[in-house]
């Protein structure tokens, strides 16, 4: 009886591990999503700060960015599995990116470098790091 219980428990545990592993694997797309969000964040910063100085062009770039985010969101919702904590990590990355742009790195680069493409590319890369960190953490899930 005891041995049967133990054998049955081991079978159930093995099956549960297989099911959990399949879900984890199905949620791996989220790291690619985070990388794409990071690229879009980088692209928006460089576009509005270095390429398009006029208000109308900045507005057009921002609208295009928002549309790309929307399309990416639709693609994200089409997946069968939303990995645990993925949305929370995305929100944290977006808050960190926007906060850095609005309050910390953005004003400093604007003041020191104006519309320099090199400076804004470097700053955009640094500000997109939270997305890459989120992607890396997602990729490490087992």
């Amino acid at each position: 009886m005891v041995e049967q219980d133990a054998a049955r428990a081991r079978t159930v545990l093995g099956e549960a591990a297989r099911a959990g592993g399949r879900t984890t694997a199905a949620g791996r797309w989220w790291s690619g999503y985070m990388v794409l969000m990071g690229l879009l964040a980088f692209g928006l910063i460089v576009a509005v700060e270095a390429f398009f100085p006029s208000f109308a062009a900045r507005l057009a770039a921002t609208v295009a960015w928002a549309m790309a985010i929307g399309l990416l969101g639709t693609w994200a919702r089409s997946h069968e599995v939303q990995p645990r904590g993925g949305f929370r990590r995305l929100l944290i990355a977006m808050a960190a990116w926007f906060g850095a742009y609005l309050v910390v790195i953005g004003p400093v680069v604007r003041w020191q470098a104006g519309t320099s493409l090199g400076w804004w590319s470097a700053a955009g890369g640094v500000m997109a790091l939270p997305f890459l960190v989120g992607a890396w953490r997602e990729g490490r899930r087992t």
Partner: peptide, 20 residues
């Protein structure tokens, strides 16, 4: 065992589709 597997499959996800 089936319910335990369902829970095990749901644990690594915020949400998962029924058919998955």
């Amino acid at each position: 065992a089936t319910r335990f597997s369902i829970m095990a499959a749901l644990l690594p996800a915020d949400k998962a589709e029924f058919k998955f």
